[in-house]
C-alpha cells in the first residue's frame, strides 16, 4: 500500500501568490505607454504624409463627403414656380421673402468671396478658397476640406468693421493655405483606425466610426501651433492689404467680454489663449503707423445682419 497514498500538496503551485492588482497595473502601464508611443508616432506620420495629397484630390474629397453641408442656395433653384395659382397671399408673401433672403445670402457670399480674394492677392501660388455664408445666429467661422470657408451671420453681426472681418477670413484662409483641415482629418482618421484595430471593432462598427469622423468635417480641430501659425499669417496678410493691423483683435476682445455665451461656437473650435491675444497686440505694436483708418463694412450688410438682442 505504500505506493498508494495522497500526500498533502503544498499551496501556491498552480496559483501565484503575487497580488493580482500588481500584475494588473504592470500590464496596464506597459500597454498604456506602448499605446501612447504608437499613437504619437502614427499621428506624426499621418500629419507628414497627408500633406502629399494634392489639393485637387482634397477638393474632390470635400465635394463627395460634404455635399450636404455646402449652402444649397448655390445649386438648388427654388421650387415655388408652377404652383403659384394654388397659393394664398401669405404663402406668396413667404415665397417672396424667401426669394429676397436667398438673393441677400448670395450677395453676402459674393462680398465674402471678394474680400477673401483680395486677401489672397499677395500670396504666391495660393490654394483657391470658396467662401460660404451660413444664416445662423451662432458666432462661428471655420475652414474645412477643399478650401471651403464658412462664416455665420452671428459672427458678421458682432464685427464692427471690415478690418476685423478680414482678420477672421485671413485666419481661416491661412488654415487652408497651411492645409490644416486635411492634416486634422488625416490625423483623426489614422487615430480612429488605430483604435479600431486595437479594440477589435467589427466591420460594421468600423464603417460607422469612419462616418462619424466624416461628420467632424465641420468641427475639425487644429493644433495650437496651427492656430498660432494661422494668426501670424493672417496678421501679415492684413498688414499687406490695409497697411496696418488696426481692429485685428476686435473679435478676441468681444469673445473675452462675452465668455460663456452659448452662441459663441467659435470658442469651441478656436480655443482662446491669452498668449494668442498677446501675440496679436505685440504684432500691432511693432507695425503701428500714423494712419490707422479702418474700413467700414458695406452699409447694406451692416444694417441687416444686426442681431435682435
Amino acid at each position: 500500500m505504500t505506493e498508494y497514498s495522497n500526500p498533502q500538496i503544498p499551496e501556491g503551485i498552480n496559483v501565484s501568490s503575487e497580488h493580482p492588482l500588481k500584475d494588473f497595473f504592470l500590464m496596464l502601464s506597459g500597454i498604456g505607454i506602448a499605446l501612447v508611443l504608437a499613437i504619437t508616432l502614427l499621428s506624426m506620420f499621418a500629419q507628414q504624409l497627408v500633406r502629399f495629397i494634392p489639393f485637387e484630390v482634397e477638393q474632390t474629397l470635400a465635394a463627395n463627403l460634404g455635399q450636404w453641408q455646402l449652402d444649397r442656395s448655390d445649386t438648388e433653384p427654388l421650387d415655388e414656380e408652377g404652383t403659384a395659382a394654388n397659393l394664398t397671399d401669405d404663402e406668396i408673401a413667404l415665397a417672396q421673402s424667401n426669394r429676397e433672403k436667398e438673393a441677400y445670402n448670395r450677395r453676402v457670399k459674393t462680398y465674402l468671396q471678394q474680400l477673401g480674394n483680395q486677401l489672397l492677392v499677395n500670396t504666391t501660388d495660393p490654394l483657391p478658397v470658396a467662401l460660404h455664408y451660413i444664416d445662423s445666429d451662432m458666432v462661428n467661422a471655420f475652414a474645412t476640406l477643399g478650401g471651403h470657408i464658412f462664416v455665420s451671420r452671428g459672427l458678421l453681426s458682432i464685427l464692427p468693421d471690415e478690418n476685423s472681418l478680414a482678420m477672421v477670413l485671413a485666419h481661416e484662409i491661412a488654415h487652408v493655405q497651411h492645409r490644416d483641415p486635411i492634416v486634422a482629418l488625416g490625423r483623426g482618421l489614422t487615430l480612429g483606425l488605430a483604435l479600431m484595430c486595437i479594440t477589435g471593432n467589427g466591420d460594421g462598427a468600423m464603417a460607422q466610426q469612419l462616418l462619424g469622423e466624416v461628420n467632424l468635417l465641420v468641427g475639425l480641430r487644429f493644433s495650437r501651433d496651427a492656430e498660432t501659425a494661422a494668426d501670424q499669417a493672417a496678421l501679415e496678410s492684413l498688414l499687406q492689404h490695409y497697411g496696418h493691423v488696426a481692429s485685428a483683435d476686435q473679435l478676441f476682445q468681444y469673445l473675452r467680454q462675452h465668455q460663456g455665451d452659448e452662441l459663441l461656437e467659435w470658442f469651441s473650435t478656436h480655443p482662446l489663449h491669452d498668449q494668442r491675444i498677446a501675440m496679436i497686440d505685440q504684432f500691432a505694436a511693432k507695425h503701428r503707423v500714423a494712419q490707422m483708418d479702418t474700413t467700414a463694412l458695406p452699409a447694406w450688410l451692416q444694417l441687416s445682419v444686426h442681431r435682435a438682442d
Partner: peptide, 13 residues
Amino acid sequence: LRSLIGGRVMAYE
C-alpha cells in the same frame, strides 16, 4: 490585457 502581451494568465489560473 494579458492576451496582448502573453505570459501566465494568473487571473484564470
